[in-house]
Every structure is written in C-alpha cells, then in structure tokens.
Nucleic acid binder design. Structure first.
Lengths: 142, 142
DNA sequence: CTTGACCTTCCAGTAAGTGGAAGCCCTATA
DNA sequence: TATAGGGCTTCCACTTACTGGAAGGTCAAG
C-alpha cells in the first residue's frame, strides 16, 4: 500500500505517517522506487495510533501502548495503569480550567464593555485591587 | 533595576523576561556595562504579563492587552472582547476534556487490570469492537 | 587577587506535527 | 513520444512559550 492509500484508510495525514516513521512508531518497507510500502499490520498500527492520539495519549504513551498491543502476553494491568494516569492528568486539567473559567467569567460579567476605559479585567491584570503596600512593600526602592 | 531584581519582584524567571524583551513586550534600557536596566514601568508591565499569562491569555493577546493597558483612551469593550473569546476557548476546552474524561473513565472501569491480556481499553484502541465489515469494507484489497 | 554571584549572548531542545520547496516516478492522453 | 497531472521523496523551517546550558564578561566582598 502506498502512503496516500494508508493515509485515507487510517485517517492520518501522510505527513503525520512519515513523522511516525521518523520517530520509529512504524517501519514500512520500501519499494525499488523508494516509495514506502505499508503492510496491513502497519495500517492497523496507524489506526491504533490515531485512536490513541485522539484519546489524548502522548506519543510516548502511544509507543508503550503499541508495544503492549503487540505483546500477546501483556497484562491488562499495564494498559490500565497508563490509561488511569492519563485520566488523572485530564481530570486535573479540567479542574484547572474550571477554576480559570470561573475567574474569567467573574471578570467578564463585571466589565461594562462600553467605550469608557474603566475595566475590572484591567484592574485585575494590573493588580490595582491589591493594597499598594502589598504590591510594593514599604521601604522598597528601585 | 537589574534583571534578577525584576525577576524576583515580578515572579517571572529572568529567562522569560529576556524572552519577553526579544519578542518586544518590554524595552528596558541598557547600562554602560551592557546590563539591562528596568524602570518601574517595566516591572509593572511584567507583573501585568505574568498575571495575564497565568489567566491563560496567549502572548499575542497579552501584547494587545498591554497596548490597551497603556492606552488611557481604551474602551473596556475591547478588553472585554478579548477576555470573552478567551473564556469561550477555555470553556470549549473544558467540554472536550470532559468528553475525553468520560470515555477514558468508562474504559478504565471496565478494565480488570489483572495479569491477563484481555483489555477493553486495547479493544477500543484496536477498534475490535467495531464490526469487521466496518473496519475493512467487503472487497477491500491491499 | 580570587571567588562567587550576576549578568551577557547564542544555540538547542521541548510536543507533535504542519507547510512548503525542489525534485523523482508513474500513468494517461494528445 | 512528449507532456501534464498527481503522487511520492527528502529536507528545512515554523509553530507556542519558554527552558537549559555553555562560554564568557562584570561586580562586590574578603
């Protein structure tokens, strides 16, 4: 199979597939004319990678998952561990973004959004709602 | 003020401050010995940038916010627009991650996590829960 | 005079690709 | 048979927002 064919079937851009070869995730053979020649197994691997990436696994996690994928003796515990730590990262990120969202939303609703310069968002960014003494402790010189 | 001093006061690493100068966010003057010499206004700008970055605004948004910060005639509407579109992006990201989290969680709870190779997570990644005809439509040749 | 903390610049690397240029290869058609 | 097109190749640069490190100049203290 040529790369265009594999690209279409796997849903991955040809560029990405070449990149995956570069970093050793797939090793297609070559024809005499230099064209890559993908086996069905390569296509399966690439589809696997596409799905794993779409679930947010990092390339290095994908590499490990791929080796587990090819290991008939694997323990599901090893797979689960990777998924679990990824899930934890995702959930952590969600929490961070939710806190961020709350802060931003609060600023946005308090901003009039008119043609005057007064702006609680700017006030937050400039720290102008903090006491001067907190921003620049007494006795500070520059 | 030397960069170390500004770094400490703004909470930004010296490396980051130099980078911000590189991309034109601050323009400290130079002493005879080549050292950067930051004015109090520079410190304010850097603190502003630190806060804006911590709220997730991109560097380019920060650049715009900084110009609004320095514009006494600005409209709060301009500031609000930036914050609002950023908020929308954040909320969108949260939704994506929540969908992702749900999918991962579902896979994780269904995985026994023992020493056998059976694994719903792997099944998802390999698409083995899809009908073969869906994966490889009849008549497909490689 | 030396030591150590600061400061300087420049280069490289991060994650995971994406865009583009220059140049083969293959097939169909005029 | 010449040529046009589409597909394939490699290589380089760019993206975001820094971060690490090397090599070397500067400054104040002891």
């Amino acid at each position: 199979m040529n790369i265009g064919n594999v690209s279409e079937k796997s849903g991955l851009p040809a560029k990405t597939i070449r990149y995956y070869e570069d970093i050793g995730l797939v090793q297609p053979s070559r024809r005499e004319n230099g064209y890559r020649d993908f086996a069905v197994q390569d296509l399966h691997k690439l589809a696997f990678l596409g799905r794993a990436r779409s679930l947010g696994f990092s390339i290095e996690e994908c590499r490990t998952l791929l080796s587990l994928y090819e290991d008939r003796e694997r323990s599901s515990a090893d797979v689960k561990a990777i998924a679990q730590s990824h899930l934890a990262r995702v959930d952590q990120k969600i929490e961070e973004l939710q806190a961020l969202s709350a802060t931003l939303r609060n600023l946005v609703v308090r901003c009039h959004g008119d043609d005057r310069p007064d702006c609680p968002i700017m006030d937050d960014l400039t720290g102008s709602d903090l006491a001067e003494t907190q921003k620049y402790p007494a006795g500070t010189t520059y």
